[in-house]
Simulated scan of single mutants.
Amino acid sequence: MSPENEQDETDTLPARARSRWSRVSQWSGTRWGRFNTWRAGRPFLGGLLLCLAGVLITWVPMQILPDLAFIGGQMAGFLAIGALFGVFVFLTGIYVLVKPAHADVAGVVGTVLAIFSLFGSLGGLLVGMLLGILGGNLCLAWKPRDDVVDDAVSEPSVVDKAAARIDAGFGRLVGRLLLSCRAGIDRIKRWGTDE
């Protein structure tokens, strides 16, 4: 092989690698961008924590339930209810990710079910219950970006205006009471010095 052919191959190899890398980065960049857009439109972390809590809550009774299924009794039913709580917590997490408009209701349901899982499956050794409560609260607190309004820009509501009027009236009342109390104390001091 001549040295010219070796140099041509080395020049084209980095160019090919850059070309392939740019195609891969463009492909992954568009997918990552679409995922970020999808994620920003819903309470992603709250839904993810609810799903993880559901798995942990279901895991605990499923470790014991197969052994007790043959024996039967009340304990098997108790553990089955605990496993159902875990499945429902997982499903609320999926529901939040699919229907973000109902995130507040699903967050409350997920939190309540996570708390009730304490009775059927020890709350996933308490870790699942705590993750479910946290995920439910994140779903409850989530607001879509379109509904977020800066407080400095928005007008005060009717309730805020009424509260401001009540506060101003209360301030005037307290001011009058303080003035009358001071005047009374001054009269008492003068009356004590006149005698």
Rank of each mutant, 00 (worst) to 15 (best):
R31I: 04
R31S: 11
W32S: 15
W32F: 10
G33L: 02
R34M: 06
R34Y: 08
N36I: 00
T37E: 14
W38T: 07
W38H: 08
R39S: 11
R39E: 06
R39L: 04
A40W: 03
A40V: 03
P43G: 01
F44W: 07
F44D: 01
L45K: 05
L48N: 04
L48R: 01
V55M: 03
V55D: 04
I57K: 01
I57W: 02
W59N: 06
P61A: 09
P61W: 10
P61G: 11
M62S: 08
M62Q: 05
M62R: 05
Q63C: 14
Q63T: 12
Q63Y: 08
I64L: 15
P66F: 10
D67K: 14
L68D: 01
A69T: 13
F70S: 14
I71L: 14
I71W: 13
G73A: 10
G73S: 10
M75A: 14
F78D: 09
F78V: 01
L79F: 14
L79E: 06
A80H: 10
I81V: 15
I81W: 15
G82P: 14
F85V: 10
F85L: 15
G86E: 04
V89M: 07
V89P: 03
F90V: 09
L91H: 06
L91I: 14
T92A: 11
G93C: 11
G93F: 04
G93K: 04
G93M: 05
I94P: 00
Y95E: 12
Y95N: 09
V96R: 01
L97C: 04
V98G: 00
V98C: 03
A101R: 08
D104F: 07
D104W: 05
D104M: 09
G107D: 12
V108F: 00
V108P: 01
V109A: 10
V109L: 09
V109Q: 00
G110R: 05
T111Q: 00
V112A: 11
L113A: 06
F116V: 07
F116K: 04
F116H: 06
S117T: 06
L118E: 05
L118P: 03
F119V: 12
F119Q: 07
F119W: 11
F119E: 09
G120N: 10
S121G: 15
